[in-house]
């Protein structure tokens, strides 16, 4: 039997007039995985996700989410929405309603809603249950958005830049929430421009820039990080010298012989993921 894919995208193109926002994306997301679409602002992340969510129509290409074309109109499209959960980029709606009022109301929309109290506990809003949305902090507001995203017990959850504007602590605790959702078996498609977020959460990462997917890989192998050349630097003739090499050990021995002992200010470093990422998106600009 073949692996079932929660999301299948082939040759997706989205044009706005003469501007191409998404320029031929192929993508397969497996059921139960967290897939991160990583890219700078304006790379085409949100456009791609909004096509998958059924908000926008593709200019061309094939899109299947849970084996269904999200652009389908009418009651079939509505039924399909029972199976997906959407957490949009920052919103300020329902400001005058309390956490419990909003979540209980949205539960009515779904055929198979989850228990409201349980969802409130899961997203960590128990203490704010009667607070109005306008009184919540940025992080709490996002938790409410997630609660509304999961209240219909979706099979797949879309999270569009969920932690933008968070302080580091709020981000860490939000990541815990996402891991909990994954543990429940949900497929999660996450967009982010934070590399550490993709690295922390995702099973696989797709780097997107200028409407194209540059690379898809695990956070460990992205950009050939595991085989990337190391940098060796030292001080010579009053200047910092740097070379890149696949074999830093041999290089250091060679230097050691040349200096006949101590190598001044020797440093050997492997590129971190951030450097690789910046290089990847920089090259294509």
């Amino acid at each position: 039997m073949s692996i079932t894919h929660a999301i299948e995208v082939e040759g997706l193109v989205k044009k706005y007039g003469s501007k191409t926002a998404v320029d031929g994306i192929d993508l397969k997301v497996e059921t139960g995985e967290i897939f991160a679409l990583l890219g700078p602002n304006g790379a085409g992340k949100t456009t791609t996700v909004e096509i998958l969510e059924g908000y926008r129509k593709a200019s061309s290409g094939q899109v299947k989410v849970l084996d269904f074309d999200p652009a389908t109109k009418g009651s079939a499209g509505q039924r399909w929405r029972n199976r997906i959960g959407i957490v949009l980029q920052s919103t300020t709606d329902a400001a005058d309603l309390s956490v419990i009022e909003t979540i209980s109301h949205y539960a009515n929309y779904y055929e198979n809603p989850r228990d409201v109290e349980q969802v409130i506990d899961e997203v960590g809003l128990r203490e704010k249950i009667n607070a109005k949305a306008r009184e919540l902090s940025g992080g709490q507001r996002r938790r409410l958005d997630v609660a509304l995203g999961i209240i219909g017990s979706p099979e797949i959850l879309f999270l569009d830049e969920p932690t933008t504007g968070f302080d580091p602590e709020a981000r860490r605790s939000f990541w815990e929430l996402i891991r909990t959702l994954k543990a429940e078996g949900k497929t999660i498609l996450l967009t982010t421009h934070y590399l550490d977020e993709a690295q922390e959460l995702a099973d696989r990462v797709g780097v997107i820039n200028n409407g194209k997917i540059i690379e898809i890989g695990t956070p460990q192998t992205l950009g050939g990080r595991n085989t990337a050349p190391a940098k060796v630097s030292w001080l010579e003739n009053g200047k910092q010298q740097v070379i890149e090499t696949k074999d830093p050990t041999t290089e250091v021995i060679r230097l050691n012989q040349r200096f006949n002992g101590q190598i001044p200010e020797l440093e050997v470093s492997r590129p971190n993921l951030e450097e690789i990422y910046l290089k990847m998106i920089g090259e294509l600009k």
Binding site: Y55, Q78, I86, L88, S90, D93, Y110, G152
Partner: peptide, 11 residues
């Protein structure tokens, strides 16, 4: 404020 967009994403 996102009310309509959120509703659009529900059944």
């Amino acid at each position: 404020d996102g009310t309509l967009k959120r509703l659009r994403g529900t059944p």
